[in-house]
Design a protein around this nucleic acid. Structure first.
Length: 416
DNA sequence: GGGCCTTTGAAGGTA
DNA sequence: TACCTTCAAAGGCCC
C-alpha cells in the first residue's frame, strides 16, 4: 500500500494520507517516480494476467474458494501518461490544495480494465463515462443509488465533471460542507442539496438539525438500508415494541478506498457482469493498487474532507460508538467469534490453566483440558494450550470479557 | 433473516 | 510504538 507522504498541517489527523502536492512543474518528476511504480505494477499485471488465464469461470467464486473474477486490472500506462498530460494542461493541475472532486479530469474516471478482453489483446479498453458517479457520493446519502449526479443541484448546471470547465470560486469543499464553529445548527443554503434532507425524519437528523448520510437507523438490517427508503416511518406496532427510541447510528466516514469503491463499483459491475461484491471488491482492490499516487491522492483528499465534515457534524462521535453497538448488540457474529465458540464451552468463562491453575482443571476450557478422560493418562497428550510451553504467566485480574481474540492474548492456540 | 465473503483505510484498544 | 481488531460499502451466497 503506497503510503502517501504527509502534507502535514491537518489538525484533523490522518496525516498519513496527506499528500505533498506538487505543482505542474513537477509533473515530470512525478512521471519519473511513477516509473518505479510501473515496474511494480508490471509484476502485478503479469500476475493478474496469469490469474485471468487460470480463472475461466465467469461466475462468482464460491465460499472457500478464492474468487477469480473474469476481469483484471489492466493498468495501461499510456492511459495514465495521458492522464498526467491532461492534468498538466488542464485544470486539474491546480487541484490541490483546492478540492479535486469539483474538477475531476475525465481520465481519472476512466476504467482501466480489460475485464472482457483477453489479456493478450492490445486493444485499449473502451473508455467509459463514469456512470455519473462521483467520488464524493458518500457525502450524499450513503445508499446504493446515490451515485453522484453529474450536475448536482447545488452546482451550476454547466459544471459537468466531464469538462470541469467551471469551478466554484472556492476550491475548497468547505464552501459546500463545512460549517464554521458555532454555526453547526445553521444550514447554509449550500447544504440544502442533500437529497435526503427532505425525507429524513427527526430521528435522521443530527441534533443540530443537519441531516447527514452517515446517520442511519440502528438496526442491523438497516445498516445496509439507507435513508431514502422511508425507514424512519416505522409501523406503530413496531414502535410500541420499542421501549425506548433507538438512537440513529452515525456511521463511519468512508475512507479513500471506500470512496473509490463507491465510484467504481457500478462500472466494474457493468463491465464484468459481476454482482457479488466480494469478487468486485477484489477487482477494485487490485485497481486501487494499480492507481498512481496522484489518482489515489484524489480519494485520500476526498476521504479527508469527508472525515472533516463528519467531525464537524458529529464532534462527539467516536468510532467506538459503533463498536459498542456491535459488540453488545445482535448485529453479527464474527467468524473469529464463531471459531471461538466452536472450540470452547459456550456460556462458560473457562479459560485454560493460566487463568485457573492446575488445581482447577475442571474450570479449564475444553481444548485446554485436552479431552478430560485422557488427562489422567500417562503420559498426558500434549495440551493445546500454549501455556504448557510457557512459564506460568501473570495475567491481569480483569475479567475475561474481551469478545475478540488477539494473537497476543493468552488463549488457546486452538482458537486461532 | 442474518452472517459471510472481499477489499483498504481509519480509528480505537491493548501490551 | 507496534500490533490487533472492528467498521465502513456492496450484494450474492449460504445456513
Amino acid at each position: 500500500m503506497p503510503q502517501l507522504s504527509s502534507g502535514g498541517g491537518d489538525d484533523m489527523g490522518a496525516n498519513d494520507e496527506m499528500i505533498a502536492f506538487k505543482d505542474e512543474g513537477e509533473q515530470e518528476e512525478k512521471i519519473q517516480e511513477n516509473a518505479f511504480t510501473e515496474r511494480d505494477l508490471a509484476d502485478l499485471k503479469s500476475s493478474l494476467v496469469n490469474e485471468s488465464e487460470i480463472s475461466q469461470s465467469p461466475g462468482v467464486a464460491r465460499r472457500g474458494q478464492q474468487p477469480e473474477p473474469r476481469c483484471y486490472v489492466e493498468k495501461h500506462r499510456e492511459h495514465l501518461n495521458g492522464v498526467t498530460k491532461q492534468q498538466d494542461g488542464g485544470m486539474y493541475k491546480t487541484s490541490y490544495p483546492g478540492y479535486p472532486f469539483l474538477m475531476l479530469p475525465d481520465p481519472y474516471l476512466q476504467i482501466v480494465t480489460d475485464c472482457v478482453s483477453p489479456p493478450q489483446s492490445n486493444k485499449v479498453s473502451v473508455v467509459q463515462q463514469s456512470h455519473g458517479m462521483h467520488p464524493l457520493s458518500s457525502l450524499l446519502p450513503y445508499g446504493p443509488n446515490e451515485h453522484f449526479s453529474p450536475s448536482p443541484p447545488h452546482l451550476p448546471t454547466d459544471m459537468s465533471q466531464k469538462t470541469g470547465v467551471h469551478r466554484p470560486q472556492s476550491q475548497d469543499i468547505s464552501g459546500f460542507y463545512s460549517l464554521p464553529p458555532g454555526s453547526v445548527g445553521q444550514i447554509s443554503p449550500s447544504m440544502g442539496w442533500f437529497p435526503h434532507s427532505l425525507m429524513l425524519g427527526p430521528s435522521g437528523m443530527h441534533p443540530t438539525g443537519i441531516p447527514h448520510p452517515a446517520i442511519v437507523p440502528p438496526s442491523a438490517k438497516q445498516e445496509h438500508d439507507h435513508y431514502d427508503r422511508g425507514m424512519y416511518a416505522k409501523p406503530q406496532g413496531e414502535a410500541k415494541r420499542e421501549k425506548e427510541p433507538k438512537k440513529p447510528v452515525i456511521k463511519k466516514p468512508l475512507n479513500a478506498f471506500m470512496l473509490y469503491m463507491k465510484e467504481m463499483r457500478a462500472k466494474v459491475i457493468a463491465e464484468c457482469t459481476l454482482k457479488e461484491s466480494a469478487a468486485i471488491n477484489q477487482i477494485l482492490g487490485r485497481r486501487w493498487h494499480a492507481l498512481t499516487r496522484d489518482e489515489q491522492a484524489k480519494y485520500y483528499e476526498l476521504a479527508r474532507k469527508e472525515r472533516q465534515l463528519h467531525m464537524q457534524l458529529y464532534p462527539s462521535w467516536s468510532a467506538r460508538d459503533n463498536y459498542v453497538r456491535t459488540l453488545f448488540g445482535k448485529k453479527k457474529r464474527r467468524k473469529r467469534e464463531k471459531q471461538q465458540d466452536s472450540n470452547t464451552d459456550p456460556g462458560s468463562p473457562k479459560k485454560c490453566r493460566a487463568r485457573f491453575g492446575l488445581n482447577q482443571q475442571t474450570d479449564w476450557c475444553g481444548p485446554c483440558r485436552c479431552v478430560p478422560e485422557t488427562l489422567s493418562a500417562s503420559p498426558p497428550p500434549p495440551c493445546l494450550c500454549r501455556f504448557d510451553r510457557l512459564p506460568p504467566p501473570v495475567l491481569s485480574s480483569r475479567p475475561f470479557i474481551r469478545p475478540s481474540v488477539r494473537l497476543s492474548d493468552p488463549v488457546c492456540m486452538s482458537l486461532r
